[in-house]
C-alpha cells in the first residue's frame, strides 16, 4: 500500500493528527453523568467550592469566595500582600481575590454610605 518510507511517514502523521482531532472531539465537553452528580453534590452542601483549592489552609477565598470577601494576605500588614499569598500567588489557576470593585450587583454597596 505505502511503498516508500516517506509515504508511510506521511500516513503515520495523518493518523496521529486524525487521532488527536478525534480525541479533542470526544473530550471537549464534560461528561454529562459527572455534571449531574456534581449538581447533586452541590445540592447537598448548598453550593460550595469554586476555586482551585480543595481545602482552607492556603486561602479560603481560593476555595470559595462565598466564604470570604478578600484574601487575608490582601488585608494583612504587608503592602500588596496578596502577591505573597500561597493560595493566590502560587497556583496559576487561582482567581483574582474578590474585592468590592469586582462585584457587579448591589453587593457592591459599601458599608459606609457614600456622601
Amino acid at each position: 500500500m505505502f511503498q516508500d518510507s516517506s509515504t508511510r511517514l506521511i500516513a503515520l502523521i495523518a493518523i496521529l493528527v486524525i487521532a488527536a482531532g478525534t480525541a479533542v472531539g470526544c473530550y471537549r465537553q464534560p461528561v454529562s453523568a459527572r455534571a449531574a452528580d456534581a449538581a447533586g453534590f452541590q445540592k447537598l452542601v448548598g453550593g460550595l467550592g469554586f476555586g482551585s483549592s480543595v481545602e482552607l489552609s492556603t486561602c479560603a477565598v481560593q476555595f470559595d469566595p462565598r466564604l470570604g470577601v478578600t484574601c487575608n494576605a490582601h488585608t494583612g500588614p504587608i503592602p500588596a500582600g496578596s502577591l505573597l499569598c500561597p493560595g493566590c500567588g502560587r497556583f496559576l489557576f487561582s482567581f483574582y481575590p474578590w474585592s468590592f470593585e469586582n462585584l457587579t450587583g448591589s453587593s457592591a454597596t459599601r458599608h459606609v454610605p457614600a456622601p
Binding site: F50, G51, P65, R66, F91, L92, F93, S94, F95, Y96, W98, N102, L103, T104, G105, S107
Partner: peptide, 17 residues
C-alpha cells in the same frame, strides 16, 4: 452574595490567572 456576583467572577477571575 448572589449568583450573578459569582458568575461575574468566572470570566474575570479564572481568566485573569
Amino acid at each position: 452574595t448572589s449568583r450573578a456576583d459569582l458568575e461575574s467572577l468566572l470570566p474575570a477571575g479564572l481568566g485573569h490567572r
